[in-house]
């Protein structure tokens, strides 16, 4: 008996087929093929797996958002495009797709409710904070500071009047760049914790309970500010000022 058990174990180990691991490139190719065949659910699933595995670069998230938008999962699409634009403000295709997704969503809601949809603009402070990524602001700040130092040195050692004027202009520009970068960094660092409502037909709950009394409705794709958390529920405040609790699984954090 004592000899049989290890023998069976080794036999099983030898006979067992090795686990087949799909690498990221294959998964990406599979997702693109599925999208080409119109199988949007499979494409979205593959891209979600890629993002969950850590390959959440701008291009992958952009593709995922585009697939979501084509599958009419507008809330999740808005969430993906907003994330891409926060990282890369110059991603014009993501900006175009975000705009198109919002228009589609508004038309769908208007068709369902029979009323025009009015979207609230985000506050100016948030717009400034989202203007450039944090890395860009820091780089601008460092360059501005270096410019200030070099301009001061150049101005002290300048022999001609033209060189001194040029150094002064460079000093002023560098100081402006440094202050602007400082403002951008502060605005970015003080951004409120925001999320996007991923699904439609939701209402804010009056308390953090599964059977709580529903209150004001929230739109799919709407940006909300996270105020507090209680277990699986998150207290949010909409741009319109309404507050209430939502299931955390219905929110995508930005």
């Amino acid at each position: 008996m004592s000899v049989k058990a290890p023998a069976l174990f080794f036999a099983a180990m030898l006979c067992a087929s090795p686990a087949h691991a799909v690498n990221a490139r294959e998964l990406m190719t599979h997702a693109l093929q599925a999208e080409g065949h119109g199988d949007l659910a499979t494409a979205a699933h593959d891209l979600e797996e890629l993002a969950a595995a850590g390959f959440d670069g701008d291009a992958v998230v952009y593709d995922l958002g585009t697939v979501y938008a084509r599958a009419e999962r507008y809330g999740e699409a808005v969430w993906c495009f907003e994330r891409v634009l926060r990282r890369a403000p110059l991603a014009w295709e993501a900006r175009q797709n975000l705009q198109a997704t919002r228009v589609r969503l508004a038309r769908r809601d208007a068709g369902r409710s029979g009323r025009a949809v009015v979207e609230q603009a985000v506050p100016l402070r948030v717009q400034v904070g989202e203007l450039v990524p944090l890395g860009w602001s820091v780089a601008l700040g460092v360059l501005g500071q270096l410019g200030v130092v070099l301009a001061v040195l150049r101005r002290r050692r300048g022999t001609s009047e033209l060189a001194r004027v040029g150094a002064t202009v460079a000093l002023v520009l560098s100081l402006c760049a440094s202050l602007a970068s400082l403002g951008l960094v502060v605005a970015r660092r003080t951004l409120p914790a925001e999320s996007v409502v991923l699904h439609g037909g939701l209402r804010l709950l009056q308390s953090a309970r599964v059977d709580a009394i529903p209150d004001a409705p929230v739109r799919e794709g709407e940006r909300v500010v996270r105020v507090a958390r209680d277990g699986m529920f998150t207290r949010v405040r909409t741009l319109g000022g309404a507050s209430g609790w939502l299931d955390g699984a219905e929110l995508g954090d930005l």
Partner: peptide
């Protein structure tokens, strides 16, 4: 409402 196409050459 036109959506831009997917990015085919994706740096992973």
């Amino acid at each position: 409402t036109q959506l831009a196409p997917l990015v085919r050459e994706v740096p992973l």
